[in-house]
């Protein structure tokens, strides 16, 4: 399936990315090529095959729900671009 310019715009929005007009052209071409290659998978019948999400058997890991020391708040705020009081500052949402 070909990825058209309008598809690139839609995917870019879902991905929260801006793309320039030039990039739309470029990505449309490159993503189409990649998707075309990937579609070879349709040669295989997988009707009765279970999907593998993790290749080794792993089980859920439980632990006691007890309070432990975590990373210091100050340290975390140190790398934040914008903070105010005890929070990360972002543009107005509502």
């Amino acid at each position: 399936m070909a990825i058209l310019k309008k598809d690139v715009e839609y995917i870019a929005h879902l991905s929260r990315l801006n793309v320039s007009e030039d990039e739309k052209e470029e990505y449309s071409k490159q993503l189409s090529n990649i998707i075309q290659h990937i579609e070879r998978l349709n040669e295989l019948n997988t009707d009765n095959v279970e999907p593998t999400y993790y290749a080794l058997d792993i089980k859920n890991v439980f632990r006691e729900d007890k309070i432990e020391e975590s990373i210091d708040k100050e340290k975390v705020f140190n790398s934040a671009p914008l903070i105010e009081k005890n929070g990360f500052k972002v543009p107005k949402i509502i």
Binding site: L41, T46, V49, P51, T52, A55
Partner: peptide, 10 residues
């Protein structure tokens, strides 16, 4: 589909 083929590869 890819996860299913992953099973075949495994």
């Amino acid at each position: 589909k890819a996860q299913k083929v992953r099973t075949l590869i495994k």
